[in-house]
Amino acid sequence: MPDSEKNKNRRSSHGQTFNEFMTTMDRLFAEKPIKGLLQSMDDFFGTIERGFPVEIIEKDTHFHIKAALPGVKREQIDIEMLAQGVIISVKNFVQPVKMTGNKTPAKRKQSSKTVSRTITLSKPIDEQRATASHRDGVLEIKVPKLKGKRIAIID
């Protein structure tokens, strides 16, 4: 058998092995785990929505962070400033559940009492001059960037 045919058969064999592997992996993640502890974990992680949506807008001089927190009171929110990031925590967070039909949306409490998001920013920030406001279920944080020292390039 010529070398080109051997290489072709070898590639075909490897492709078939890879396809079988991918099929097995797809089946593993698509099927529910065996009942018991694994099923409980799957049900737990599959039904609870964690966190809240956050939008980060980078401007020339600052970062503008918006977090959607409907139904959350100002007293429930804790903001911690880091050297290059922000942690937003909400105590006793209640996630609204969307219902179909004419029913009004129900509310369910998260299993944990505090939900938080850590936002890492691309540049160092001036944490002392950061400001925050909370209106109509939207938390807005304005975080000024620190300016670095520019240096001249010498030949």
Rank of each mutant, 00 (worst) to 15 (best):
D3M: 09
S4G: 02
K6Y: 15
K6N: 06
K6R: 13
N7K: 14
R11D: 05
S13W: 11
H14F: 10
H14N: 08
Q16Y: 07
F18E: 09
F18L: 11
E20A: 08
F21V: 01
F21I: 03
T23G: 00
T23E: 07
T23F: 04
T24W: 15
T24K: 14
M25C: 01
D26N: 08
L28Y: 13
F29T: 06
A30W: 13
A30G: 01
K32G: 02
K32Y: 11
P33A: 05
G36M: 03
S40G: 08
S40T: 11
D43C: 00
G46D: 14
T47K: 10
I48N: 13
R50S: 03
F52L: 00
F52N: 02
F52S: 03
P53Q: 10
P53C: 02
V54D: 07
E55A: 01
I57L: 11
I57P: 01
K59G: 00
K59T: 06
D60G: 00
D60P: 00
H62T: 10
F63S: 01
H64T: 07
A68Y: 12
K73G: 02
R74I: 08
R74H: 11
I77W: 05
I77Y: 05
I77E: 08
D78M: 09
D78E: 13
I79L: 10
E80V: 06
M81T: 12
A83W: 13
Q84E: 11
G85P: 00
V86C: 08
K91G: 03
K91L: 04
K91C: 07
Q95E: 07
P96Q: 09
P96I: 09
P96K: 07
K98I: 10
T100Q: 08
G101D: 05
K103F: 12
K103S: 06
A106N: 05
R108N: 08
R108C: 05
K109F: 15
S111W: 15
S111V: 15
K113D: 15
T114K: 14
V115W: 06
S116W: 14
T118Q: 12
T120A: 04
L121D: 06
P124D: 15
D126W: 13
D126I: 14
D126A: 12
Q128R: 13
Q128V: 10
A130C: 05
T131M: 06
T131E: 14
S133T: 15
S133E: 11
S133F: 06
G137V: 06
E140A: 11
K142N: 12
K142V: 15
K142E: 13
V143Q: 01
P144Y: 15
L146G: 06
K147C: 01
R150W: 12
I151S: 03
I151F: 13
I153P: 00
I154V: 13
D155A: 02
